[in-house]
Amino acid sequence: MLEARLPSAVTLKKIIDAVKELVQDANFDCNDSGIALQAMDSSHVALVALLMRAEGFDPYRCDRNIALGINFATLAKVMKCAGNDDNLTIKAGEDADVLSLMFESTNSDRISEFDIKLMDVDADHLGIPETDYSATIKMPSAEFQRICRDLSVMSETVTIEAVKDAVKFIASGDTGSGSITVKPNQAVDKKDMEVTVTLQEPVKLAFSLKYLNHFAKASTLAGSVTLSLSDDVPLMI
């Protein structure tokens, strides 16, 4: 039996909005520590790893481990029906075949209830191996989203070059090329506006902007984003 109540639906709305572009059908693995999602996109190029800790819900109850097979396009449509400030309760009974979602407006004058059919998703057991990255860049997430959007006008591929005191995003295509250089700015007043480049050794790697733009949709969830890069391993965002 799972019953979890989120004080404001906006958090789950943003999460689903960011993930739905990448993940078709996947399991929400629920246990007493929270709700986890580990899933790849259909072409197995990107992995989404998400953990919604039990502490973020109030109350949170999960009697035994349960895997909820969900079609994320359907869940995204249902989440569109929730107001940002509604409180949201998700429920799934023993051997449930539906996930129930309830949105309650702040003054409880409107209660919406949706059931979405659960499906059997045979999931590969996935995880991100512990990696000691050559370069780790921390920067404002909105700025990263802006860079990915801006450089998409020039190319489908962006080269990220991390050197001692700067990170450079370069895109070159048939029509021309563009580059954006971001420099560290320690000691800023707002933590989220900080830019730091931690370097074990310089790296210069190319990535698909299609996927980076999908990942950047999660920018509204956190003010700061960390990019971790090393040769021959996937970029971690």
Binding site: M40, S43, H44, V45, A46, L47, D124, H125, L126, G127, I128, P129, E156, T157, A206, S208, V233, P234
Partner: peptide, 14 residues
Amino acid sequence: GGEQKSLLSFFARK
């Protein structure tokens, strides 16, 4: 650029 290689084996838990 071009087609991306599958990362399933990289992320698959042994």
